[in-house]
Amino acid sequence: MIHDGETGQDIAQALADQDVVKSFDAFYDLLRKESPAPVFQPGAYQLSTKMSGRAALDRLLDPASHLNQTVLITEGTVAVDVLQLLSEGTDIPLAELQTAAADVASFGLPAEAKTLEGFLFPDTYSFPPGLSAHDALQKLVDSQFQALDRAGVAPERRWSTIVLAALIQKEAGPNDFFKVSRVFHNRTDPAQWDSGRMQSDATVAYGTGKTHVVTTTDAERADASNPYNTYIHPGLPVGPISNPGRVAIDAALHPADGPWLYFVTWNQETRETIFSTTADEHEAAVVKWQAWMKENPEYG
């Protein structure tokens, strides 16, 4: 997906991250030499992996590669960004999507749902021209219901499963979903974690509106007015904080076996995570994370 307002650097990074080109430099250096500067249209494009920078650029500038009415939604995307993606990839105005999304009761969600968050299934979608905003969103909701059904989740458990899966999706790298799930399951056990507080920075950040980061300040973690503040309020967050995919749902239902009560993703690039059972072990892991963050302030 190319998003409205993205720069050449953004596009180069996306291509490198998805293994379309060998590296950021392989594409961006070529892009800087182009005259006149290429103009990219927002939307979805069909490319291959392991392309040369030249081939990737030619493909992005070829109208035949632009997939009309196609939208790619990745796991962990939050609802406000899903609406933007739908608008960029289709002929549906953003304002119509926002209006449709506000009518939460019309989508058949669990009674606890106050927004569509958590129930917009991440996938690649192709929409027929002229589809209404409500019907486009309903397609995503129905896909999430189907994913829950395939996972064996009864309708009465949809809400609790999605809330936990959305938290796992936001807090963990894909390789650690099942271990992170175990940490949160263990924290719901009073015999292991008597406070009952999940203490998730991702939930706090979501409640402040900072949906693209998981770091928080001392003041934010102490703010009891934030209903998503799981440092203050016990139990799972009051609602989903992302739109989870199949693996996160599976992890929520089938946590790994283990005694872990803490985890910290100390390397934000590789998503390497340290799991700990004691507070002392966790403190040592936090020190390692803080050192990495000091050397990589752009992730703060």
Rank of each mutant, 00 (worst) to 15 (best):
M1D: 01
G8K: 07
Q18I: 07
Q18T: 15
V20A: 00
S23I: 02
F24V: 00
Y28A: 01
D29K: 15
D29S: 13
L31V: 02
L31A: 04
A37D: 01
P38Q: 11
P38T: 07
F40K: 04
G43Y: 00
Y45A: 06
Y45M: 08
Q46G: 08
L47K: 11
M51A: 09
S52L: 03
L57T: 11
L60I: 02
D62C: 04
H66P: 08
N68A: 15
T70F: 03
E75H: 13
G76C: 09
G76T: 02
T77R: 13
V78T: 13
D81K: 12
L86Q: 13
S87D: 07
G89L: 01
G89I: 03
D91Y: 09
I92G: 08
I92Q: 12
P93R: 14
A95R: 15
A95N: 14
L97I: 10
A102R: 14
A102M: 10
S106I: 08
L109A: 06
L109V: 01
P110Y: 15
A111L: 10
E112H: 14
E112P: 07
E112R: 14
A113H: 13
A113T: 04
K114Y: 03
L116C: 05
F119N: 06
L120E: 05
P122H: 03
Y125S: 01
L137C: 02
K139Q: 06
Q144N: 12
D149P: 09
G152V: 11
R158Q: 12
R158M: 05
S160E: 15
S160H: 12
S160D: 15
T161D: 05
A165Q: 02
A166L: 00
A166Y: 01
I168D: 03
K170H: 02
K170G: 00
K170R: 14
D176H: 14
D176Q: 15
D176N: 15
V180R: 14
S181V: 04
S181P: 13
S181M: 04
S181G: 12
R182I: 00
R182T: 02
F184M: 09
H185R: 10
R187T: 01
R187Y: 02
T188Y: 04
D189L: 09
Q192H: 06
S195E: 09
S200F: 01
S200T: 00
T203Q: 02
G209I: 00
T211I: 06
T215E: 05
T215R: 15
E220C: 03
E220A: 08
S225C: 02
N226Y: 00
I232T: 00
V238Q: 04
V238E: 03
V238R: 04
I241W: 05
S242T: 11
G245D: 08
R246E: 14
R246L: 08
I249V: 15
I249M: 09
L253T: 11
H254E: 05
D257L: 14
G258C: 11
W260R: 07
L261A: 08
Q268W: 00
T270D: 03
T270Q: 06
T270M: 04
T273I: 08
T273Q: 07
I274S: 15
I274Q: 12
F275Y: 03
S276H: 05
T278S: 10
H282Y: 06
H282R: 06
E283Q: 14
E283S: 10
A285P: 08
V286M: 05
K288Q: 07
W292S: 06
E295C: 11
N296A: 07
P297I: 15
Y299P: 09
